[in-house]
């Protein structure tokens, strides 16, 4: 049996340069700062150090520092990531670029206004339970729940919304719900005890047709939810059932709709 790794008794630090966006939605600039980095630090630690030592007015939103609240979403070296889950040793040498999420209006520095997401969320039809059984219970199979359980891991960091080019590049906020809310609708729509039908909403109001499956949402998800493969594409297929498949329409005509 090998001996345990020795615990370091001294902590060596090295300076790293951070280039941080300072400004708001109207104007701003990238400002360089230096932070002393020690082993085990994450980007949010460095941002806090810069706040404490160099820039007490630097605005940054954070809460749990454990990758579960989703508050510290930002763009590190151009990639949408959680600052608290990005370890310094995972970044390449050289200056580290930190910017706010691009798909939402900048309030100040690294803080963005994400309230649009909550407005979209309110428009989604909530869970509507099916008829209870004679003994008053709603029974479900474990494997049915396993499928939708993945979607419940979402921490609403909105990194998927930020990286989605429909929102980020084409500003379709007025027409398109975005991957986060396709995940939510998948969790409801595939629920074995849900009686609601959201396919019309998905097609006409959430505009799922705007998604062209480039899978960036899946790439950035800190909870590793297979957003495209397990949520968006199955929902697109359900929309196809309803609107683009004459065979499915004929089957519905003969046997009736399940929902």
């Amino acid at each position: 049996m090998s001996s345990p790794s020795p615990v370091p008794t001294t902590t060596r630090s090295e300076p790293r340069t951070f280039i941080i966006w300072r400004g708001d939605k109207d104007s701003g600039t990238y400002t360089p700062y230096t932070a002393e980095i020690t082993a085990g630090m994450v980007v949010l630690d460095a941002i806090h150090q810069i706040q404490a030592v160099h820039a007490p007015d630097l605005a940054v939103r954070w809460n749990c520092k454990a990758g579960k609240c989703g508050s510290c979403a930002a763009e590190i070296n151009g990639k949408p990531r959680l600052m608290c889950m990005t370890r310094m040793e995972s970044l390449p040498p050289g200056p580290i670029h930190v910017a706010p999420m691009k798909a939402f209006p900048n309030i100040k520095d690294l803080v963005t206004d994400v309230k649009w997401n909550y407005a979209v969320n309110k428009r989604i039809k909530p869970f509507k339970p099916k008829q209870v059984e004679a003994d008053g219970s709603l029974r479900m199979q474990q494997h049915d729940i396993d499928r939708v359980q993945e979607f419940r891991k979402c921490i609403e960091c909105f990194l998927c919304q930020d990286t989605c080019h429909v929102l980020r590049e084409h500003d379709k906020h007025a027409e398109f719900a975005g991957p986060r809310f396709f995940v939510r609708m998948a969790s409801l729509e595939m629920h074995p005890q849900d009686a609601e039908d959201r396919r019309e909403f998905l097609k006409k109001e959430a505009a799922i047709g705007y998604c062209n499956i480039t899978k960036c949402c899946t790439e950035v998800c800190p909870e590793h939810i297979h957003i495209t493969d397990n949520a968006i594409i199955p929902l697109k297929e359900r929309v196809v059932d309803q609107y683009y498949d004459p065979l499915a329409a004929a089957i519905r005509f003969v046997f009736g709709s399940k929902k």
Partner: peptide, 15 residues
């Protein structure tokens, strides 16, 4: 690629 700018402003998706 993800988080990389595009050449066009117009976008219709698969609609």
């Amino acid at each position: 690629a993800c988080a990389v700018g595009e050449p066009r402003n117009d976008y219709w998706g698969e609609n």
